[in-house]
Design a binder for these strands. Structure first.
Lengths: 99, 99
DNA sequence: TAAATTTGGTTTATAAAATAAACTAATTTA
DNA sequence: TAAATTAGTTTATTTTATAAACCAAATTTA
Protein backbone atom coordinates (compact mmCIF):
# COMPACT_ATOMS: atom_id res chain seq x y z
CA UNK A 1 0.00 0.00 0.00
CA UNK A 2 2.08 2.83 -1.29
CA UNK A 3 0.45 6.22 -1.32
CA UNK A 4 -1.16 7.03 2.00
CA UNK A 5 -3.07 10.19 2.81
CA UNK A 6 -0.75 12.96 3.83
CA UNK A 7 -1.64 14.71 7.07
CA UNK A 8 -3.25 17.89 5.75
CA UNK A 9 -2.09 19.82 8.78
CA UNK A 10 1.51 19.17 7.87
CA UNK A 11 1.12 19.19 4.10
CA UNK A 12 1.26 22.96 3.99
CA UNK A 13 4.49 24.69 3.16
CA UNK A 14 4.44 27.09 6.07
CA UNK A 15 3.21 24.67 8.72
CA UNK A 16 5.71 22.09 7.55
CA UNK A 17 8.47 24.68 7.79
CA UNK A 18 7.37 25.66 11.29
CA UNK A 19 7.29 22.08 12.53
CA UNK A 20 10.54 21.27 10.78
CA UNK A 21 12.22 24.12 12.61
CA UNK A 22 10.66 23.22 15.94
CA UNK A 23 11.79 19.63 15.63
CA UNK A 24 15.37 20.86 15.46
CA UNK A 25 15.38 23.55 18.09
CA UNK A 26 12.67 22.34 20.46
CA UNK A 27 11.70 25.93 21.30
CA UNK A 28 11.50 29.04 19.20
CA UNK A 29 10.14 32.56 19.31
CA UNK A 30 7.51 33.88 16.96
CA UNK A 31 10.00 36.36 15.57
CA UNK A 32 12.56 33.65 14.94
CA UNK A 33 10.04 31.53 13.06
CA UNK A 34 8.95 34.56 11.11
CA UNK A 35 12.50 35.35 10.06
CA UNK A 36 13.37 31.75 9.17
CA UNK A 37 10.22 31.07 7.18
CA UNK A 38 9.87 34.47 5.52
CA UNK A 39 6.20 34.34 6.37
CA UNK A 40 4.08 37.38 7.08
CA UNK A 41 3.15 37.82 10.71
CA UNK A 42 -0.52 37.29 9.95
CA UNK A 43 -0.01 34.08 8.12
CA UNK A 44 2.35 32.80 10.78
CA UNK A 45 -0.10 33.66 13.52
CA UNK A 46 -2.90 31.76 11.81
CA UNK A 47 -0.82 28.68 11.10
CA UNK A 48 0.56 28.56 14.63
CA UNK A 49 -2.97 28.61 15.99
CA UNK A 50 -3.91 25.68 13.77
CA UNK A 51 -0.91 23.68 14.93
CA UNK A 52 -1.79 24.51 18.52
CA UNK A 53 -5.43 23.50 18.07
CA UNK A 54 -4.24 20.20 16.66
CA UNK A 55 -2.06 19.69 19.70
CA UNK A 56 1.07 19.63 17.59
CA UNK A 57 2.70 22.58 19.35
CA UNK A 58 2.45 24.50 22.60
CA UNK A 59 2.43 28.26 22.75
CA UNK A 60 3.48 30.26 25.77
CA UNK A 61 3.08 33.97 25.91
CA UNK A 62 5.11 36.24 28.12
CA UNK A 63 6.98 39.51 27.99
CA UNK A 64 10.61 40.03 27.20
CA UNK A 65 12.21 43.46 27.31
CA UNK A 66 8.77 45.02 27.56
CA UNK A 67 7.55 43.37 24.38
CA UNK A 68 5.21 40.44 24.10
CA UNK A 69 6.96 37.20 23.39
CA UNK A 70 5.37 34.13 21.87
CA UNK A 71 7.30 30.94 22.48
CA UNK A 72 6.53 27.78 20.54
CA UNK A 73 7.60 24.25 21.10
CA UNK A 74 6.63 20.97 19.55
CA UNK A 75 4.66 18.38 21.52
CA UNK A 76 5.16 14.63 21.44
CA UNK A 77 1.99 14.41 19.39
CA UNK A 78 3.45 16.86 16.90
CA UNK A 79 6.67 14.95 16.78
CA UNK A 80 4.85 11.72 16.02
CA UNK A 81 2.75 13.37 13.36
CA UNK A 82 5.86 14.78 11.76
CA UNK A 83 7.60 11.40 11.73
CA UNK A 84 4.56 9.81 10.17
CA UNK A 85 4.35 12.53 7.56
CA UNK A 86 8.01 12.08 6.69
CA UNK A 87 7.52 8.35 6.22
CA UNK A 88 4.38 8.81 4.18
CA UNK A 89 5.67 11.41 1.77
CA UNK A 90 8.78 9.41 1.04
CA UNK A 91 6.59 7.02 -0.92
CA UNK A 92 5.47 9.93 -3.05
CA UNK A 93 9.05 10.99 -3.58
CA UNK A 94 10.17 7.50 -4.57
CA UNK A 95 12.74 7.59 -1.82
CA UNK A 96 13.88 4.30 -0.42
CA UNK A 97 16.01 5.89 2.26
CA UNK A 98 15.56 5.76 5.98
CA UNK A 99 15.62 8.77 8.21
CA UNK B 1 19.85 28.54 2.67
CA UNK B 2 17.69 25.70 3.81
CA UNK B 3 13.97 26.12 3.24
CA UNK B 4 13.29 26.95 -0.37
CA UNK B 5 9.88 27.57 -1.86
CA UNK B 6 8.19 24.36 -2.81
CA UNK B 7 6.82 24.22 -6.34
CA UNK B 8 3.12 24.80 -5.71
CA UNK B 9 2.20 22.71 -8.70
CA UNK B 10 3.79 19.69 -7.15
CA UNK B 11 3.00 20.46 -3.54
CA UNK B 12 -0.49 19.09 -3.84
CA UNK B 13 -1.25 15.60 -2.71
CA UNK B 14 -2.99 14.48 -5.84
CA UNK B 15 -0.67 16.14 -8.34
CA UNK B 16 2.33 14.82 -6.46
CA UNK B 17 0.84 11.34 -6.55
CA UNK B 18 0.17 11.61 -10.28
CA UNK B 19 3.69 12.75 -11.07
CA UNK B 20 5.17 10.20 -8.71
CA UNK B 21 3.36 7.45 -10.58
CA UNK B 22 4.27 8.83 -13.98
CA UNK B 23 7.93 9.02 -13.04
CA UNK B 24 7.89 5.29 -12.41
CA UNK B 25 5.84 4.05 -15.32
CA UNK B 26 6.53 6.67 -17.97
CA UNK B 27 3.02 6.29 -19.37
CA UNK B 28 -0.33 5.70 -17.75
CA UNK B 29 -4.02 5.77 -18.52
CA UNK B 30 -6.50 8.05 -16.84
CA UNK B 31 -8.27 5.04 -15.38
CA UNK B 32 -5.04 3.64 -13.98
CA UNK B 33 -4.19 6.93 -12.31
CA UNK B 34 -7.70 7.16 -10.97
CA UNK B 35 -7.48 3.71 -9.43
CA UNK B 36 -4.02 4.23 -7.98
CA UNK B 37 -4.71 7.61 -6.47
CA UNK B 38 -8.29 6.98 -5.33
CA UNK B 39 -9.17 10.35 -6.77
CA UNK B 40 -12.55 11.21 -8.20
CA UNK B 41 -12.60 11.52 -11.97
CA UNK B 42 -13.41 15.20 -11.77
CA UNK B 43 -10.58 16.05 -9.46
CA UNK B 44 -8.17 13.95 -11.51
CA UNK B 45 -9.26 15.63 -14.71
CA UNK B 46 -8.68 19.08 -13.26
CA UNK B 47 -5.26 18.28 -11.84
CA UNK B 48 -4.12 16.61 -15.06
CA UNK B 49 -5.04 19.74 -16.96
CA UNK B 50 -2.98 21.85 -14.59
CA UNK B 51 0.03 19.60 -14.98
CA UNK B 52 -0.41 19.73 -18.73
CA UNK B 53 -0.70 23.52 -18.78
CA UNK B 54 2.53 23.68 -16.79
CA UNK B 55 4.20 21.45 -19.36
CA UNK B 56 4.89 18.79 -16.74
CA UNK B 57 2.95 16.07 -18.56
CA UNK B 58 1.66 15.28 -22.02
CA UNK B 59 -1.84 14.03 -22.63
CA UNK B 60 -2.82 12.00 -25.67
CA UNK B 61 -6.41 11.14 -26.35
CA UNK B 62 -7.47 8.24 -28.47
CA UNK B 63 -9.92 5.38 -28.47
CA UNK B 64 -9.36 1.92 -27.16
CA UNK B 65 -11.99 -0.80 -27.49
CA UNK B 66 -14.50 1.85 -28.52
CA UNK B 67 -13.97 3.88 -25.38
CA UNK B 68 -12.07 7.11 -25.06
CA UNK B 69 -8.63 6.69 -23.65
CA UNK B 70 -6.53 9.39 -22.02
CA UNK B 71 -2.84 8.59 -21.88
CA UNK B 72 -0.49 10.60 -19.73
CA UNK B 73 3.25 10.74 -19.66
CA UNK B 74 5.73 12.93 -17.90
CA UNK B 75 7.86 15.40 -19.84
CA UNK B 76 11.50 16.21 -19.23
CA UNK B 77 10.35 19.48 -17.73
CA UNK B 78 8.09 17.58 -15.37
CA UNK B 79 10.89 15.24 -14.46
CA UNK B 80 13.20 18.12 -13.64
CA UNK B 81 10.55 19.83 -11.59
CA UNK B 82 9.94 16.64 -9.67
CA UNK B 83 13.62 16.16 -8.94
CA UNK B 84 13.89 19.72 -7.72
CA UNK B 85 10.82 19.31 -5.56
CA UNK B 86 12.26 16.15 -4.02
CA UNK B 87 15.52 17.90 -3.21
CA UNK B 88 13.75 20.93 -1.79
CA UNK B 89 11.32 19.14 0.46
CA UNK B 90 14.06 16.99 1.93
CA UNK B 91 15.27 20.06 3.78
CA UNK B 92 11.84 20.40 5.33
CA UNK B 93 11.88 16.76 6.32
CA UNK B 94 15.30 17.02 7.90
CA UNK B 95 16.53 14.24 5.65
CA UNK B 96 20.19 14.16 4.88
CA UNK B 97 19.86 11.34 2.38
CA UNK B 98 20.46 11.40 -1.30
CA UNK B 99 18.05 10.05 -3.82
C1' DT C 1 -35.57 -2.26 -29.12
C1' DA C 2 -36.15 1.08 -25.75
C1' DA C 3 -34.74 2.11 -21.25
C1' DA C 4 -31.30 1.78 -17.84
C1' DT C 5 -26.56 1.38 -16.74
C1' DT C 6 -21.68 1.75 -17.36
C1' DT C 7 -17.46 3.81 -19.15
C1' DG C 8 -14.56 7.62 -19.51
C1' DG C 9 -14.31 11.52 -19.01
C1' DT C 10 -15.32 17.41 -18.63
C1' DT C 11 -17.41 21.46 -16.67
C1' DT C 12 -19.21 24.01 -13.05
C1' DA C 13 -20.12 24.95 -8.27
C1' DT C 14 -18.83 24.66 -3.47
C1' DA C 15 -15.88 24.13 0.44
C1' DA C 16 -11.59 24.72 2.42
C1' DA C 17 -7.17 26.68 2.70
C1' DA C 18 -3.57 29.99 2.27
C1' DT C 19 -2.43 34.53 2.19
C1' DA C 20 -2.61 39.45 2.55
C1' DA C 21 -4.43 43.52 4.32
C1' DA C 22 -6.07 45.94 8.05
C1' DC C 23 -6.06 46.55 12.74
C1' DT C 24 -4.58 46.57 17.95
C1' DA C 25 -1.71 47.82 21.62
C1' DA C 26 2.25 49.00 23.63
C1' DT C 27 7.08 50.96 23.01
C1' DT C 28 10.69 53.56 21.32
C1' DT C 29 12.70 57.30 18.78
C1' DA C 30 13.11 61.91 16.77
C1' DT D 1 4.26 64.47 21.24
C1' DA D 2 3.94 62.74 16.73
C1' DA D 3 5.83 59.23 13.95
C1' DA D 4 7.75 54.91 13.55
C1' DT D 5 8.70 50.24 15.32
C1' DT D 6 7.75 45.81 17.64
C1' DA D 7 4.92 41.99 18.15
C1' DG D 8 1.50 40.28 17.23
C1' DT D 9 -4.23 39.22 16.06
C1' DT D 10 -8.38 39.51 13.35
C1' DT D 11 -10.78 39.86 9.23
C1' DA D 12 -11.19 39.81 4.32
C1' DT D 13 -9.75 38.18 -0.09
C1' DT D 14 -7.75 35.14 -3.22
C1' DT D 15 -6.42 30.75 -4.46
C1' DT D 16 -6.87 25.83 -4.33
C1' DA D 17 -8.81 21.52 -3.86
C1' DT D 18 -12.67 18.86 -4.13
C1' DA D 19 -17.22 17.32 -5.13
C1' DA D 20 -21.32 17.41 -7.62
C1' DA D 21 -23.49 17.68 -11.84
C1' DC D 22 -23.30 16.87 -16.37
C1' DC D 23 -22.21 14.81 -21.24
C1' DA D 24 -21.61 11.49 -25.05
C1' DA D 25 -21.00 7.15 -26.48
C1' DA D 26 -21.19 2.21 -25.61
C1' DT D 27 -23.16 -1.63 -23.42
C1' DT D 28 -26.29 -4.29 -20.97
C1' DT D 29 -30.91 -5.63 -19.46
C1' DA D 30 -35.81 -6.28 -19.62
Amino acid sequence: MPLKELDPLLHSQLRLAIVSLLVSVEEAEFTYLKAETNATAGNLSVQLQKLKEAGYIEIEKSFKDNYPQTMCKITSKGLKAFDTYVKDIQHYLNLKTKK
